[in-house]
Amino acid sequence: MNKNNRLEGKVAIVTGSGSGIGRGCALMFAAAGAQVVGADINATTAAETEQLAAEQGTPIRSLAPCDLTNPDDVQKLIDFCIEQYGRLDILVNAGAFGAFAWLEEMDYYEGWKRTLDGELSVVFLACQKAWPHLKQSGAAAIINFASANAHNAFKPLPAIAHCAGKGGVLAMSRQLAMEGREFNIRVNTISPALIETTATREPLENIPGFRDEVLAKTMIKRLGQPEDIGYAAIYLASDEASWVTGADLPVDGGSTAW
Rank of each mutant, 00 (worst) to 15 (best):
Y235H: 12
E50K: 04
W102M: 12
S62E: 04
A47C: 06
G167I: 04
L125Y: 04
L120I: 10
N5V: 11
G18A: 13
Q51N: 11
R211M: 07
Y231A: 15
I21F: 09
L116Q: 13
S147L: 09
D79Q: 14
P65Q: 04
W258Y: 13
E110W: 07
T15S: 00
L63P: 10
F29Y: 10
N5M: 11
V11W: 02
L125F: 06
E104G: 03
L236F: 00
A232D: 01
T44N: 08
T245M: 08
I220N: 11
D107M: 10
N149C: 12
P59T: 08
G209Y: 05
K155W: 07
I190V: 10
F100Y: 15
E105Y: 10
G254I: 12
Q56K: 11
G138I: 09
I78T: 03
V14N: 08
G20S: 09
A146N: 08
L176E: 06
A31Y: 10
K3C: 14
G16D: 00
Q75P: 06
L63Q: 03
A31K: 13
I190M: 05
Y235A: 15
P203Q: 10
F154H: 10
D73Q: 00
I60C: 13
E213Y: 05
T49H: 05
E196K: 09
P250D: 04
A32S: 15
L215F: 05
A159K: 07
A12R: 10
R61E: 15
E205C: 14
G95T: 06
E227L: 12
P65K: 01
E227H: 14
P59M: 09
A140N: 05
T69L: 03
Y235L: 15
E55T: 12
G111F: 03
T198R: 15
Y231E: 15
L215V: 08
A216D: 05
E105V: 08
T58W: 09
T115N: 03
G95L: 01
L103H: 09
G209T: 05
